[in-house]
Amino acid sequence: MSLPFDSGEEYIEQQFSELVVSQEEVTAVTFEECTFTNCNFSETQFKRCIFRDCHFENCDLTLLDVDYSRFQRCKFAECKLIGVNWAKAGRIQWIEFHSCNLSYSTFMELDLSKAVLTNYLAKEATFAETNLTDANCTHTDFLDGRFIHTNLTRADFRGAKNYAIAAAENTLKQTKFSLPEAIALLDGLDIILENPTS
């Protein structure tokens, strides 16, 4: 099939809607202030591409390959981003995910400080050696997700659920949690917790 993007080209303030670019390879393309709506990029490889100030809405990006691509100030709303290895990206700066499905994704060794990850599903997502300083993770479902040596300084987890964050293995400084979900932070500690007698 003929691709809608030419390698090495730059697209500025373009609006793309209903595109189907599945299992294809897009190389060295720059997108600046572009909007993608109802597009299907599942299993597509974006190699050495640049996305700057772009907005994705209701797109299918399942198993997207972001090999050495850069994402700067991009927003994803109601998108499927299942199984994406974001650690392969060249750079991620100030990214936002709103009501997305990020299950089985990997964010290993990334700087996601001030990132917005709200109201989304992150089943079995991996945050290892990740910097989530000042990140907004409110109202997100982290079912079976993994936090390993993650910096959660001033991160906001209010309203989030199903997270398993080992306090001794991650950095928790002024991190915001809400009850009753915050009780999960006691898991793994050598303590005995009892209900008060009536």
Rank of each mutant, 00 (worst) to 15 (best):
P4I: 02
S7D: 15
G8V: 07
E9M: 08
Y11M: 04
E13I: 12
Q14T: 10
Q14G: 01
Q15F: 05
S17W: 04
Q23P: 00
T27S: 13
V29N: 06
F31A: 03
E33S: 10
N38V: 08
C39P: 02
F41K: 04
F41W: 02
F46G: 06
K47T: 15
R48C: 12
C49K: 05
C49S: 05
R52S: 11
D53E: 12
C54G: 02
H55P: 03
H55W: 09
F56K: 01
E57V: 15
N58F: 03
C59S: 06
D60S: 08
L61C: 11
L63Q: 13
D65R: 09
V66S: 04
V66K: 08
D67N: 13
D67A: 09
Y68H: 13
K75I: 13
K75V: 11
A77I: 15
E78V: 08
E78M: 08
C79V: 04
L81R: 02
L81W: 00
L81H: 01
G83K: 00
N85T: 05
A87S: 14
K88E: 15
K88Q: 13
G90D: 07
I92V: 14
Q93S: 14
Q93M: 10
W94L: 15
W94N: 14
C100W: 00
N101T: 04
N101R: 03
S105F: 00
S105L: 00
F107W: 01
E109N: 15
L110P: 03
D111H: 06
D111T: 02
L112G: 02
K114D: 11
A115Y: 00
V116R: 05
V116S: 08
L117Q: 05
L117S: 03
T118F: 02
T118L: 09
N119R: 12
N119K: 10
Y120H: 12
K123Y: 10
A125N: 04
T126P: 01
T130S: 03
T130G: 03
L132M: 05
A135I: 04
N136S: 12
N136L: 14
C137F: 07
C137E: 03
C137L: 15
C137K: 04
H139T: 10
H139M: 13
H139N: 15
T140G: 03
L143A: 12
D144R: 12
D144H: 11
D144L: 11
G145S: 15
F147V: 09
F147P: 06
I148F: 11
H149L: 09
T150S: 09
N151K: 08
L152Q: 03
T153E: 11
A155S: 13
A155F: 06
F157P: 02
F157Q: 01
F157C: 01
R158G: 07
A160L: 07
N162A: 07
Y163W: 09
I165W: 05
I165Y: 06
A166T: 13
A167R: 10
E169C: 09
N170L: 04
K173R: 10
Q174H: 08
T175V: 03
K176A: 15
K176L: 14
F177S: 07
S178A: 10
P180G: 05
P180C: 06
E181A: 13
I183N: 10
A184I: 04
L185M: 05
D190V: 08
I192K: 14
E194F: 09
N195M: 12
N195T: 15
S198P: 13
